[in-house]
Design a protein around this nucleic acid. Structure first.
Lengths: 234, 234
DNA sequence: ACGTGTCAGCGTATATCGTACTCATAAATG
DNA sequence: CATTTATGAGTACGATATACGCTGACACGT
């Protein structure tokens, strides 16, 4: 019973690391494997080949260590994934958040959020499942609420508006829309011309003009217009 | 070379089944295991215990057949999941889609879409990844475009608006917002009072009044208001 | 009615996965 | 220097998806 019970002293749950409860090792050798490196390399794998390609063995091989050594730092793979998500989100932009410019502020916030998901496509699927929020994700939410608090909304409507923008961004971030549209557009036009007439009409129109569709900006402006109208009505 | 090459004659890809290219078996025993049953039971498992709990062996056990028998009907597990998604979406509501009532039509469409994701929570994570669209999903999209075509928008803006509403619905469908908010709200209020002041203020306000927050309807109305404003401006 | 070709279902095998357990090692403390 | 103690690696196990090949049942052409 001398060996590695590790139950009483220091369970390596990533949540504690995330929320800053980490402290330096009092004894023992200096760790060669640090949690930062593990998470960074895991993110690199997921970015390059998708989350499905991330296995503990591949990660360990890339880090030049044994597979089980990873479990000294994360309690489980899900734990690692949580860490990856919060790390990928990163700290918010730290704007001064001037009051009276809520629209510009939330607009920037929306684009920043979109950029995160474009940089790390695997993160999108993760945030759609219920989970414990990490500090960075919470800070991200905080900055959105701070931005919206500049307008004169009630607390409930502040939250609703943030959830609206947040929801829109999450839903609208897809691989660029034109690519998506043309990719299944070709398929459709060929084989189901009469089955989906409206869809076909729209896609044909878009195929004529070469310009790509920037659905994100359009939708964002509509969303913010909607909030603005709501503000004006009181 | 007499046995089961099965390469030339009939590969059991689910896409063909989805798009109606299926035909009756010309020879051989009548299949005991039908694709409908497989997909239906797989959906049942995913509904009850989540998509992660769906394994080919459990599915086969539930169907009372051998594991490998499933591979006579689906080429791979991903194939099965695609079938599950399109089946869960199901055929659209088949409304007459009267022109001039675009707002009511798209509103109903949005709620129908939300209901699908509430019925099958696992479907939400699936639609966020790039994939080949099934016929039901395409028909669903078609009906949205049909609804939006009633307003006087350009083809590009019709698509943009549909993507806006679709994006919003996808992003906003979460386990009921109040539950989510209170669940991490307690956590936050306790341990990070000063770190997230705006967030805390909003959550405290909401905690005082007992009413749950219906973020979905609020956001939906804002989105449609935004589109309406855009229409009025020409 | 009868053979015969074809295909559904199954058993076995394999590679890969996450992770529990154990142990030798090396560093930091006394 | 001796003791403590976390660390990293090795081994092992159960679960996973799925490739391969067999067996037997059914439908068709005769």
């Amino acid at each position: 019973m001398t060996g590695g019970s590790r139950k009483g002293s220091g369970p390596p749950t990533g949540a504690e690391w995330l929320w800053g409860d980490r402290q330096r090792a009092p004894r023992g050798p200096r760790p060669v494997l640090r949690l930062d490196r593990i998470v960074a390399e895991a993110i690199a794998i997921a970015d390059e080949e998708g989350l499905a390609a991330l296995s503990m063995q591949r990660l360990a091989a890339r880090l030049g260590s044994g597979t089980m050594s990873l479990y000294r730092h994360v309690s489980t793979k899900d734990d690692l994934v949580s860490l990856m998500l919060d790390t990928a989100i990163g700290p918010p932009a730290e704007e001064p958040a001037e009051p009276g410019h809520w629209r510009a502020a939330i607009e920037r916030w929306a684009r920043d959020t979109r950029d995160i998901f474009l940089r790390h496509p695997w993160a999108l699927a993760l945030v759609t499942t219920p989970r414990v929020l990490g500090p960075n994700e919470t800070a991200h939410l905080e900055s959105a609420i701070a931005a919206m608090s500049g307008a004169g909304l009630s607390p409930r409507d502040v939250l609703n508006s943030v959830l609206l923008v947040n929801g829109y961004v999450r839903g609208a971030v897809q691989p660029s829309v034109d690519h998506q549209a043309s990719s299944f557009g070709h398929e459709l036009i060929r084989r189901a011309q009469d089955r989906f007439p409206h869809l076909n009409a729209v896609l044909s129109h878009l195929a004529d003009q070469g310009k790509p569709v920037d659905g994100f900006e359009f939708g964002l402006h509509r969303v913010l217009d909607g909030i603005e109208v709501y503000l004006e009505r009181g």
